[in-house]
Design a protein around this nucleic acid. Structure first.
Length: 859
RNA sequence: GGGCGCGUAGCUCAGUUGGUUAGAGCACUACGUUGACAUCGUAGGGGUCACAAGUUCGAAUCUUGUCGCGCCCACCA
């Protein structure tokens, strides 16, 4: 046992222990351990976008608390770490740092800049995660853009492509005109705003009352292919079968009845354009309407419409051309204003109503989305909804109700998963298109052993550069991060593998920790990939963390100015205290950053230190007297070495705590574990037991058997408490562990090593001497209350302590009267009637009344 | 519109399968404290468990409904 250091310096401990853990490779996965002891975690690779926020601290600590417990409990934990360092957020960061725009430069040049900028920002994460004491295996660090990740990601592509689950299709898809790329359904957000619902007349061919449609997007009139009306609409009979003529463009379009038109909305008639929304696509397909594109990839009005042809006739071509010219090149929003002006001038804007509008926008850029027809790559999901839901059911969701988010997402899917992006920095789609005579447009893919490839610079085997056209698109980062388990197990399946043995052993994984806002992306996509590649689940458990909110329960955001800098927080409270705060949070639930709880964390660290310091004095003395030879609590009780009833009681309570904490951890309820540990440590151990045991720890020379009993108990309690707190407050516990074990041969170097969690079979009998211990603490509390009410010091001596009434004291509290006298500073104890000059108080459970004859204190 | 979560002390939250008198920390009040700890201790005050009805010997807990907050999904002319 080492000497006890004077003071605990959290910052110094953080630095020293990190160095030691790295040195000893304390958190490396052990390939030599049996496979059934593996516990593999699919760690979220944080997006390299330049932002460190408190949410990182919060959610990664939640995962680490569980990881540390799992390792201590004996599992062979593989806890990798990676960085998601390609895709739009990373492009944005690089553009900001380097003051460039990716779209205006050659791809290679931009990628070179990315590779230049990224390392610094990954180092920020590395520093933060190290300081946070994430017990990740740093030898398993990966990047989603590395050669190996690109290989695995392209393997995933090839497997799905050859299975027919991934295909290139020319069809309408969601388009972000600001970033000029296609998007997946999951990247759509909605904003609410005031809009204008415009009523505009369409003349009826052959005369008659015009059909008035209502639209919020008049700029799309040029793309109108039909006028839709509900079959029950009063004018349906009259109009269906006739043709309406679009204003300004004068294009005759069929009037079609369709149940999907809401007769209550607007005028009950609506134009179908290519494309205003998803309903337009449905009508376009169902009624085989013409494709009339009026908005380009930049979200601007096309200036050369092929209007005036047989397929796209106009009854007044001159006016149509004037309209086209007037709008040419304007962005959709400007074009809307312009066309409304024209309509107004010509008396064609019959009414305009303000309406509450929900507009789909791109999550990243915030730009309103367009639907545009472009060739894109899709992974099939729509026809697999049932299988996806089945797999979701095979996974244990923690908390269980979070599964419903995935279910409602899957049920609402409208698009296959679009993975191609018209961007610059991502994993390339491994495809070429042949230009050879006779096979023009044929898709050529590499073989697995040629990966990774960049079709822009590499060539397919047997082809010359002039014979192929490279695919220029890159994959969305989700297409790669959705194989994060496989990036770590190093294979997609039996057919596509870098290391099939590790994949067979480690896949599916044990745990995916992640936040709830990416259920519809990361969790969903990862499940889809595992289904398509191997018809399995990617992991058996998914633990969903909530958000970290500001102290007042509101969302943290830059605009509100309530963002907390994680580094400052760690400096102010110490990592252990911040982790303690995280440890009070529950999975799935948002947690407000609480100064109280952070302070409480600091108190716990301090209390752990001081309680151990007190115990250490006695332990050290007993050790030097050669009297401290602990085995396990159970054996020391069985052998008679721990003989005192209150020692056994304490260890019995400790055993109950170990049991409850273990059960909580096994069901991923670490907050409950922390609470029961805290309750035992502070209330039972510090407030009561440490006070009670002082009498038997201040021995001179050789300790008596009951002193030895006390010291052995202190040893087991201290040792076990340090282990119980270890997953939560790794620095102070490992510092204390080092004091207890640092110079012992054969002891593990760190409390965080595999197998260090207290074992049930080593504990005392849970609940042993519970009745005596409780009676004792109740009587003690009553005695304290007497002194508190008398407003005297707890040390005030009493000549007698009376447990009022007909009690058998030794039956109640065992042979512990001497302890009771010492801890209450009383001379004698008795039962029966209270002396006339005694002051009395009841115990908290009202079972006892305790009277003390207090002796006047001399100053 | 459908669904999920939450609503318990002034604040932040716990409350296991229904079971004596609903708990903790912070805050508040009083008192105490020269050897583990003022980052402390002891005691105290403070709750119609959102509301209503029901089931039950018994409800914070189960059922139904209402209200409020947050979120997910859908609609979106």
């Amino acid at each position: 046992m080492k000497a006890f250091p004077d003071k605990y310096d959290a910052k110094a401990a953080e630095a020293a222990l990190n160095a030691r853990w790295a040195d000893e490779k304390a958190f490396q996965w052990d390939p030599g351990a049996p496979a059934d002891s593996d516990y593999v975690i699919d760690t979220p690779p944080p997006t390299v976008s330049g932002a460190l926020h408190i949410g990182h601290v919060y959610s990664y600590t939640q995962a680490d608390i569980t990881a540390r417990y799992m390792r201590m409990s004996g599992r062979n934990v593989l806890y990798p770490i990676g960085w998601d360092d390609n895709g739009l957020p990373t492009e944005r960061l690089v553009e900001k740092v380097k003051k460039v725009r990716g779209g205006t430069m050659a791809r290679e040049d931009f990628v070179a800049l990315c590779k230049d900028v990224i390392p610094e920002y990954e180092q920020q994460f590395r520093d933060l995660f190290t300081r946070l004491a994430l017990s990740v295996d740093w030898s398993r660090e990966y990047q989603t853009i590395s050669d190996e990740s690109r290989t695995i990601s392209q393997m995933s592509f090839l497997d799905l492509y050859h299975k027919g689950l991934l295909e290139r299709r020319l069809e309408p898809s969601l388009w972000d005109p600001a970033d000029r790329t296609a998007l997946a359904q999951a990247e759509v957000e909605e904003i609410e705003r005031e809009g204008k619902l415009n009523e505009i007349p369409f003349q009826i061919e052959g005369g008659g009352e015009p059909a008035v449609i209502a639209t919020t997007r008049p700029e799309l009139i040029g793309g109108c292919g039909a006028l839709m009306i509900h079959p029950e609409h009063p004018r349906a009979q009259e109009l269906v079968g006739k043709r309406a003529v679009s204003p300004l463009y004068n294009v005759p379009v069929p009037i079609i009845a369709d149940e999907a038109v809401d007769p209550e909305k607007g005028t009950g008639m609506v134009m179908c354009c290519t494309f205003g929304d998803i309903q337009d696509i449905n009508w376009w397909r169902a009624h085989r309407l013409p494709l009339r594109i009026v908005i380009d990839r930049a979200g601007k009005m096309v200036d050369q419409l092929e209007i005036g042809t047989d397929d796209w006739p106009s009854l007044n071509l001159e006016e149509a051309r004037e309209t086209i010219a007037a709008l040419a090149g304007l962005k959709a929003a400007k074009a809307k204003e312009a066309i409304l002006e024209i309509l107004k001038e010509k008396g064609l804007l019959l009414a305009q109503k303000t309406t509450h509008q929900v507009v789909p926008v791109a999550e990243r850029s915030g730009a309103p989305l367009e639907i545009i027809v472009t060739p894109q790559w899709f992974i099939k999901t729509l026809e697999f909804k049932d299988q996806i839901l089945e797999k979701a059911n095979e996974i244990t969701w923690r908390p269980a109700y979070m599964k419903q988010r995935l279910e409602s997402w899957v049920e609402g899917l409208k698009w296959d998963w679009l993975i191609s992006r018209q961007r610059h920095f991502g994993v390339p789609l491994p495809v070429w298109y042949s230009k050879r005579a006779g096979e023009e447009g044929k898709m050529i893919t590499p073989t697995a052993d040629q990966l990774p490839v960049d079709p822009m610079t590499d060539l397919p085997e047997g082809y010359e550069a002039h014979e192929v056209e490279p695919e220029r698109d890159v994959m969305d980062t989700w297409a790669t991060s959705s194989v994060s388990p496989q990036l770590n197990t190093r294979a997609i399946n039996e057919d596509y593998a870098l290391d099939i043995d590790s994949h067979r052993r480690q896949f599916p994984m044990a745990l995916r920790p992640q936040a709830h806002e990416i259920i519809r992306t990361w969790a969903f996509y990862t499940i889809v990939k595992a289904l398509h590649h191997q018809n399995t689940v990617p992991w058996t458990n998914i633990a969903i963390s909530g958000w970290c909110l500001a102290g007042d329960g509101s969302k943290m955001s830059k605009s509100k100015g309530n963002v907390v800098d994680p580094i400052k927080l760690l400096d102010q409270y110490g990592v252990d205290a911040v982790r303690f705060w995280t440890g009070t949070s529950r999975l799935g639930q948002d947690t407000a950053l609480s100064e109280n709880t952070l302070k409480q964390g600091k108190r716990v660290v301090n209390k752990l230190w001081n309680a151990t310091k007190l115990a250490h004095m006695a332990l050290k003395a007993a050790d030097e007297a050669g009297a401290l030879n602990p085995t396990t609590a159970r054996e020391d009780i069985d052998s008679g070495a721990i003989s005192h009833p209150l020692d056994q009681w304490l260890l019995g309570r400790l055993a109950e705590t170990v049991k409850a904490a273990t059960e909580s951890f096994e069901s991923y309820e670490y907050a409950n574990a922390q609470r029961v540990i805290e309750d035992f440590f502070w209330r039972t151990y510090c407030d009561n037991y440490l006070e009670i045991v002082k009498r038997r720890t201040r021995f001179e020379g050789a300790p008596s058997p009951e002193d030895v009993s006390a010291c052995l108990t202190l040893w087991h309690a201290t040792d076990t408490i340090v282990r119980l707190y270890a997953p939560f407050t790794p620095y102070v516990t490992d510092s204390l562990y080092d004091v207890l074990y640092g110079d012992q041969d054969g002891a593990a170097a760190t409390v965080h090593a595999r197998g260090q969690w207290p074992k049930a079979q080593d504990q005392a009998e849970p609940g042993v001497n519970r009745a005596e211990g409780e009676a004792f603490t109740q009587i003690l509390a009553a005695a304290r209350k007497v002194k508190s009410e008398a407003q005297v010091s707890m040390k005030t001596p009493a000549s007698t302590l009376t447990v009022v009434g007909d009690h058998d004291l030794s039956a109640l509290i065992g042979e512990t009267v001497e302890d009771l006298l010492a801890v209450t500073n009383a001379e004698t104890a008795q039962t029966g009637d209270a002396p006339a000059d005694a002051k009395a108080a009841g115990s908290p459970d009202e079972r006892f009344t305790v009277a003390l004859q207090l002796q006047p204190q001399e100053k």
